[in-house]
Amino acid sequence: MMIAGIGSRKGVSVEDVLAAIEAALETHGLTMTALSALATAPLKQDEKAIFAAGHQLNLPIVVADTAAIEAVSSATLSHSVLSQELAGTPSVSEASALAVAGRGARLLGARTVLGPVTCAIAISGVGP
């Protein structure tokens, strides 16, 4: 399973979200068809553009559980002071992707920042 974790400023457009996802995938030589779902944090559950992007891509959008985000926050590669203050994690996009990808998940790299949106790609771990 491959998850795109999304973080953003308030009021972003669906085009901003889609462009960030595309940029993150391109960084890793992947295409949209590689994705299983989009993920974000509870702080972003009312951000309409994230859900609109999922709808356009025909992908489920999972709002990661706060406890799951906290559990994986130490595994993030990027560290934003603002994200830590507002969301309780150093990277909303990275922690959300890891939390939804599940146990043993790993990031393909640090988040991609494109304007007001960040996107990180995580892949599920293998085995129990």
Rank of each mutant, 00 (worst) to 15 (best):
I3T: 10
G102T: 12
M2Y: 15
V117Y: 06
S80D: 06
L107Q: 06
I69S: 03
L43H: 09
E70I: 12
A122V: 03
H79K: 15
R111M: 04
L18Q: 04
G7A: 14
E94L: 02
A37P: 06
T118R: 02
T112D: 04
S96F: 01
A105P: 00
M32V: 11
M32A: 13
R106A: 13
E15W: 07
V12D: 00
T40V: 10
A101R: 00
E85D: 12
P60S: 12
P60I: 05
L57W: 13
M2I: 15
C119M: 01
A37G: 04
M32W: 10
T27L: 13
K44G: 07
S73D: 01
S124T: 12
A97V: 11
V17R: 07
H55V: 11
S8Q: 05
G11L: 03
T76M: 00
V92F: 00
R103Q: 14
K10V: 14
E15Y: 04
L38R: 00
P60N: 10
A110L: 08
A4C: 15
T118N: 05
T76Y: 11
N58A: 14
V62S: 03
R111Q: 10
E22P: 00
Q56C: 11
V100R: 00
A49G: 07
A41D: 05
T40N: 03
E26C: 12
A24E: 09
K48C: 07
I3D: 01
G88M: 13
L43P: 02
P60K: 12
G54R: 00
H28R: 11
A37S: 15
L82Q: 07
A105I: 03
Q84T: 15
T89K: 01
A122I: 07
A95R: 00
A67W: 05
F51D: 10
G5A: 08
A53F: 04
G125N: 02
G29Y: 04
A4T: 05
S91T: 09
